[in-house]
Simulated scan of single mutants.
Amino acid sequence: MELALEDTAVTIKVLSVGGKRMSRAIYSQMPRRSPLSNHDCTVQGQLWGIVVDPKCCHRMGSGSTSVDLLRSVTGDGPGGVHRRAIVQSGHMASRVEKYLAHLDRLSGGREPRFFPVESTKQGLRGVTEIVYDDLPDGLLTTLTYGLSLAEHPEWQHGSPELCLSVNSTNVIWAHAVGFLAEQLRGTCPFSYGSTINFGERIVPDSEMTAFCVFAPLVLDRADYLGIDVGVPGHEGHDVINIQGMYPIHEVERQFINEHGLEAFWKSGWEPTDVLRSPAI
């Protein structure tokens, strides 16, 4: 990987992941925002007492659709607090339907697993982990829905959802991202360069204890920026931007906070390898 910092953009060119050739992508931050952030967020409370148990996973069955299942775990359907209906192809489609339809296009219709995370925020529904196994090949990819329901003063050009891609089959990585999205929504900006401190191992078999935020590894710029989930006539008023989450070691978190993300990105680390040694 290589990263180039320009006057108004952070650019990352993905050449390969784990030795596998991937499509070339160029990522740039949205205009009128600082390209890098010095935010350092800390998780409060016990992690695994809140995250959903794996047995709560929802899969599609006969007669069910991805939208049905996501509605069932988010409550974003008829009468839902955060339902934003639109007229599309002769039927009413909610905010979550537009988001999930976008993910379906990106995944080629692959069936994900859904894990709900109960809300601890008054007035906000829970967060959902949308988990794709072996997509891209060999990676566990997780996206969230529910972080963008909150508000933050820095979210001037859209609200974030999170994306994690790791070389692992351990679904705890997905639960960690869902937990962070739910616990830190409204307080952590999840902007490029932000670091998030777990204070303990994220999963038992990895020594990593933190995350940093940058553009998603497996998505093209047009696929992760400016996802319009607004109502007709008000397009662009409700926009989701997908932010990439990268597991890192504590020493790397400290390095990023002191020297910035660009210096760390040039250290030659492998972003999907959760068993790697520190790059610093």
Rank of each mutant, 00 (worst) to 15 (best):
L100R: 04
E154D: 12
I50D: 14
V131D: 08
L219C: 13
D7M: 03
I240K: 05
V51I: 10
L164A: 05
R201D: 05
S64K: 12
W173K: 12
S159I: 03
V251Y: 02
S148R: 07
I196G: 04
G138M: 14
A210G: 11
D220C: 09
A25W: 07
G63S: 09
F255P: 01
H157W: 09
T195S: 11
A210D: 03
S119M: 10
Y246E: 07
H91N: 13
L5F: 07
G49S: 14
M1D: 00
W269T: 02
L69A: 15
W265N: 08
V231I: 13
Q88Y: 09
T142H: 07
M30P: 09
V213T: 14
C163E: 13
I196A: 06
P160W: 03
F179I: 02
Q122T: 00
C56M: 12
L184Y: 07
T74W: 03
T65R: 02
V51P: 01
D104F: 00
T42P: 00
N170M: 03
D40R: 15
K98D: 00
P31W: 05
H58P: 01
A181D: 09
I12A: 11
K121W: 03
R59S: 11
V81H: 14
L217Y: 08
P54T: 14
S165T: 09
T120M: 10
G75E: 05
L140H: 03
K98C: 02
V218D: 08
E207G: 15
M245D: 03
F264A: 10
T142Q: 06
S267A: 06
R32K: 12
D134S: 15
P54I: 11
V251N: 10
G19L: 06
C41M: 09
E262P: 07
M92D: 05
G260D: 13
H91L: 10
R32I: 00
I256C: 08
V81R: 15
Y246W: 08
H152M: 06
I248Q: 07
D228L: 00
H39Q: 13
M208S: 03
K20A: 11
S28E: 13
R32H: 11
M30W: 13
G186T: 03
S62D: 15
Q122Y: 01
M60Q: 13
L140K: 02
S206A: 12
H157T: 10
K121C: 11
P116I: 00
L135D: 01
R24V: 11
Y192N: 15
I50T: 12
Q44C: 04
S94W: 08
Q122P: 01
Q88F: 08
Y145T: 01
L69Y: 11
R24C: 00
S119N: 13
E161Y: 08
E118V: 11
L70K: 02
E262I: 14
G230L: 01
I248P: 04
S94A: 12
L106Y: 03
R113E: 15
T141S: 15
E6F: 03
V10D: 01
V81L: 12
T65K: 03
N38T: 12
S194P: 01
I86Y: 02
P136L: 02
L47H: 09
L3V: 08
